[in-house]
Write a protein that binds this DNA or RNA. Sequence first.
DNA 1: AAACGGATTGGCT
DNA 2: GCCAATCCGTTTC
Length: 201
Amino acid sequence: MKLPRSYYENQNVLFLAQDLLGKVLFTEIDGRITSGIIVETEAYFGIQDKASHAYGGRRTDRTEILYSSGGISYVYLCYGIHHLFNIVTSVKDEPHAVLIRAVEPSTGKDIMEFRRNMPASKAAISSGPGSAAKALGIDRSFNKKDLTAHEIWIEDHGILYTTDEIAVTTRIGVDYAQEDALLPWRFFVKGNRYVSRPNKE
DNA sequence: AAACGGATTGGCT
DNA sequence: GCCAATCCGTTTC
């Protein structure tokens, strides 16, 4: 059920970003478990991707974790407010990552409602990378966590989507990446109400 | 040491 | 649809 380390060491980050749709992301905080089905992702393609924090081989205190072998979390603060959760993938020194942009609440909906201060009936509870992370209780303390351990992990519940059920579009909010902003590296489940900005081409 | 800007969201128009 | 909020990591002086 729990995805093994070898899953994350796959060197094809575009495959993983798509394959992660339907997988279930769990956190356990103070004994309380919450989880959500991943319904929207984006791939960040290492040193050759202008939208990636590791573009050009950049290594700083913040980005160093991206160069790890796959199966580790990368959480950073965006706009001073939002924590964005990424999965580090591929092999050591190949800093590929997958951003989780939306989940469909599964386990512990009442806890998510409390964290987000809104009913689970509202799609906004876990739609968008900042909201999905907050619903699952992910903050900076979840940076550099082993995804095969017990605080944060991903399970395969056998949910599969055909290519017809998956939309492939350009990424969100990366206009600064110039031509790389045009790459079709965002994946989401068509028609799922938790997907952020489903109409963006 | 200080300035700059962002893989966003939510509230208001 | 538009825009302020908000602060850490990075870059620059």
